[in-house]
Design a protein around this nucleic acid. Structure first.
Lengths: 199, 199, 199, 199
DNA sequence: AATGAATGAGGATTCATTCAT
DNA sequence: GATGAATGAATCCTCATTCAT
């Protein structure tokens, strides 16, 4: 009689709880007890599943990044053409799943964590370079040699908009965020096209 | 013979120590003892001058923001013309004083702190709106009605570049940062001018 | 197999330890560590069961007052007639359980605590008014309109005798204490009876 | 040019400050800084005059007891006859100088202190035996062999009334206090006289 | 005489983590 | 699988006390 394996369920509940609590606290100053309570279990059990508090945080971070990655991949798959793919990446970045206030706050704290926890930095680096290469790939046919620079600019702007959301009193506005970045890229591309024509 | 008033000296030393330690730790997880030790005094004395740990953090934040503000003001005073003033703001933002790695890291943690500490949020809000109004003022003659949007974009990009510095393995590169943002603004302005001409 | 619930046991041990330590120190200057050590556990566990040091003190006070109240109730139940009931109250007040030196000392410190801790004052007020009403009830048939005054006098004298015990070098003598107060009341009652006869 | 010696003035100010602060706090949990501030000087100076915090407390206690002693002596000198002298002692005990709320509270804490500080106990013992002998002397001609018992009863009652004042919400009422104790003694004396007559 | 500067010692409280059941 | 019990190690903060000026 195979018992249903509760482990993944418990772990998922804890991961969600970590994100919620971090988002609520706005920092990593969250106790294991709080997390466990929100996940509906004892702190001891939380430690049973994840060896340590740090592991819980890492798992939560991995989850956030995985969701984000999946969203980008999904959006890219549905998009046709360089411009559309560019927009798709931005839309995915500011989509509802990872642009909820609490997720944004969690993301920022993961950024903080990445400064000191090697494993966290590794996770972040992977996703950053993936984003960069995605952006560059889209921009290459549009901007040629300028693609890396534009990718860098777009990446920084995505981060900046995220950062500002964590402090904004208004609910996050994905559409506006996308538009802001899209406009910048459009302008840059227009100038580049003009130059290549004129030059 | 007036005794030398050590209070401001001690306080300044503590503020510097706070920034250093926060920069080193990459987070607010810094003990008062560490700070005091680095500042060359006992933890008790640190508590004597600042009432609490939070007050130390706030003083450090105030200092960072004050230095930044001064730098911007100074740069603006020396600049002539809208374009020059725009560049001046960016140069000041990424100038050596507040673009040192440790200061950048401290800034990020202050951002985190601003999520929960009202006084911290107030400080940040003041400087954000000051930056916004400075940028908008410069952009108004260049971009007209689009000035607020460009100011928003520039602000987000400044933040984003800052954020990325906290994790970069390479030393911060102010020139490149300025160039990245300047290019974006130039492109936007070019498009705007083109439109206004064509339209 | 239900695990034995240790919580009440631990709490009782802590309450006893609080009384002992306070009695030993003669004041509220007792550390949680001392209390916990005497109760055979860590200070952290003591904080786990009682939220704070103050709560430990209040629990101890509640215990002392409860024991006293029970003793009075028990003695009253066994007594027959106003005079007997009066004596019963006094005997219970100076009975072995709450006339141990350490308990007396603890009682005094609770008095001190009641000056500033509202919850402590509330506890004390309850027991004071209960004592007053008990005494008045017994004295009413014996002293008529003078009952409240005699109750007040008796109450003050009980407190005074208690107070003196905290400093006495000799072991507390319950019998003598009862006799002292009883004699005073007897004299007062005799006079009152004489007056009512003469008047 | 002999400077006026400020030492006694400073010390007196500190003693008053100790009493006030203790009365205000309702306990010995008073910092030297608080005391010094109230006395209008620095904590360092307070330590200069009194070697330690304990010495400040002892000086304050000595002052309170001295004032009380003086008041009793003065009242006794003015009284004529045993009954009058008895009343004089009670009136002095509940006179305005040492029956102010704050002084009463201070007195109680000195009682607490006397449990552990030998010097404090010594002071208290001196005054207690002086009070006892004063009372006994007055009562001897009135109560004969019963004088010690009555003195003990009166002493306990004085203490008890004091104790209750520290917690009372109403301002201390010296007259009522004296009357309460006086009535008890009168009753006892009446009984004793009656017995000696009848017997 | 007077004080600000300075600190060591200590205390309440929190928390991640382990363990027995 | 699940949890209450238990604790050691921190950490912030306070305070009596000393010292140089």
């Amino acid at each position: 009689m195979p018992r249903p394996c509760v482990e993944p369920i418990r772990k998922a509940a804890l991961v969600e709880a970590v994100i919620s609590e971090i988002g609520l606290a706005g920092s990593l100053d969250v106790t294991v007890s709080q997390i466990a309570r929100r996940a509906g279990m004892s702190a001891a059990l939380a430690h049973h599943y994840f060896g340590s508090k740090e592991d819980m945080f890492l798992a939560a971070m991995r989850h956030v990044l995985t969701v984000y990655g999946a969203e980008v991949r999904g959006a890219l798959a549905a998009a046709d053409g360089a411009e559309a793919r560019l927009t798709a990446i931005l839309r995915a970045s500011f989509g509802p799943a990872n642009f909820r206030r609490e997720v944004v706050a969690a993301w920022l704290t993961f950024w903080i964590m990445a400064q000191t926890v090697p494993q966290a930095r590794r996770l972040l680096t992977i996703y950053e370079s993936r984003l960069r290469s995605n952006l560059t790939a889209c921009l290459r046919p549009l901007a040629g040699a300028e693609a890396p620079r534009l990718a860098e600019a777009a990446g920084a702007m995505i981060d900046g908009v995220y950062l500002r959301q964590a402090l904004a009193r208004t609910p996050p506005d994905g559409k506006a965020s996308v538009a802001l970045i899209r406009a910048m890229l459009t302008a840059e591309l227009a100038v580049i096209r003009g130059q290549s024509v004129t030059g």
